[in-house]
């Protein structure tokens, strides 16, 4: 799963959906792999408006990517910024670890790149 996934998911527990603490879910013990993919500048520029930037900055920082500016870059992006975003958003996959809800503390396991959001019976 790509890091940007956390921009569009939240805790599967119904009561957490409206809690600001549940977003973004936090990675724990995440193991990352880089997969080389062709740089597509247009794609990076196009998806920027679709990104909730503060949440991405927070998630990226927790994984050791600390070069993102605190506000979303606008206008023309320099070459280095495009490269950094390509590495972070397109080439980096989380292959194992956990995603943790900041509201209920429930942990969702990630195994072979697939996060499991099925809840135990008592939480459904």
């Amino acid at each position: 799963m790509k890091i940007l996934t956390t921009n569009y998911i939240t805790c599967a527990v119904k009561a957490c959906k409206t809690s600001s603490n549940a977003f973004p879910l936090q990675f724990r013990d995440a193991e990352l792999v880089q997969e080389e993919l062709e740089l597509n500048e247009e794609f990076i520029k196009n998806i920027l408006p679709r990104i909730e930037w503060p949440a991405l900055v927070q998630t990226a920082a927790s994984l050791g990517f600390t070069t993102l500016p605190s506000t979303k870059p606008e206008g023309d992006l320099d070459e280095q910024m495009i490269k950094d975003l390509h590495t972070l958003l397109v080439e980096t996959q989380v292959i194992s670890g956990k995603l943790v809800c900041g509201n209920c503390q429930h942990e969702y396991n990630i195994h072979q790149g697939i996060a499991n959001f099925l809840l135990p019976n008592h939480l459904v």
Partner: peptide
């Protein structure tokens, strides 16, 4: 982005 194991759209924002 990802393929996740879930009950329908329960973890989607």
């Amino acid at each position: 982005l990802a393929s996740v194991t879930a009950d329908l759209a329960t973890p989607i924002r």
